[in-house]
Amino acid sequence: MIRLEHLTKTYAKSAIKAVEDLSLEIQDGEIFGFLGPNGAGKTTTIKMLTGALEPDAGSVEIGGIDMAASPLEAKARFGFVGDDPELFNKLRAAEYLNFVADIYRVSDRERQERITSLARRFKIADVLSSSIGSFSRGMKQKLCVIASLLHDPEAWILDEPMVGLDPQAAFDLKELMRERALAGGLVLFSTHVMEVAEKLCDRIAIIDRGRLRFVGSLAELRARKSELGGGRDGESLESLFLELVDADGSDPGAAR
C-alpha cells in the first residue's frame, strides 16, 4: 500500500507551490492512474513518492515504511521507471541490469531467471551485451521496465511508461501491469494517454495546479459529473478530464 499524507512542495528556485496538501491512498492489487495536464504536479508528486525530492510538509509511506525515517527500506519495496530512459548510454544493457540488481541485492539465480524471462518477453534478449547508446528510445524504455522488476517489488511506479513503446511492447507492458495487480501488487503510473488510463486503471487521480481534483473510479467520476449536471453515460474519460481541468476555480475540496 502507498499512503501520501498532506504532501506539499515549493521548489527553492520558484515561489509557486508545485504540490499542495496532497493526500492519497493506493491499495495493493490495484492499478492506479495519475492524470493531469502539463505542469500539474504529477512528476513532483512521483519524485516525492520515490524519495528523489524531499517534501516541505507531509509524509510518504510505502508498504507501511515511512520514506523519511527509513528511505532505503521504503525504496526497496518499489520498482521505478522514470520518464527519461536516456541515462546510462555508455553502459552495456547487461552492465546496467547487473548494477540495478546489485543495488537491490538480488541473488544470482533470481536475477538470471528474471532477466531471461523479461528480456524474452520484451524481445531484447539478444542485445543485452550491446551499449545502451545504440538502442532506440523504445528499447531503452523496455530495459528500464526490466530493471525496475528485477527485485520483484510489491509496488511498481511508472512515470509516462508508454512513451516510445511500439504497439506490441505497449500491449506487453499493459499485460504485465494487469498480471502484477492480479498477483496482489500495486501499480501506479502517470500518463497523458486517456485511453490507456480508461482501459487499464481501477482508479484514477486527477491533479491540476498542484491540487487533487478527483480520486476514484471512472464510474464514480461520471456519477459525480451527473450530480453536477454534466457527465453522460458512456462519456469518455478524455472529455470528463477536460471538463474537470478546464473548470477554473473548481473546488479543491472535491478531492476524495
Binding site: G51, A52, E73, F80, G82, D84, L87, F88, I103
Partner: peptide
C-alpha cells in the same frame, strides 16, 4: 541527469 533515478534506488 541521473540523480533523480539514482535517488529512487535503495542505495546508501
Amino acid at each position: 541527469k541521473a540523480l533523480r533515478y539514482l535517488k529512487a534506488l535503495p542505495l546508501g
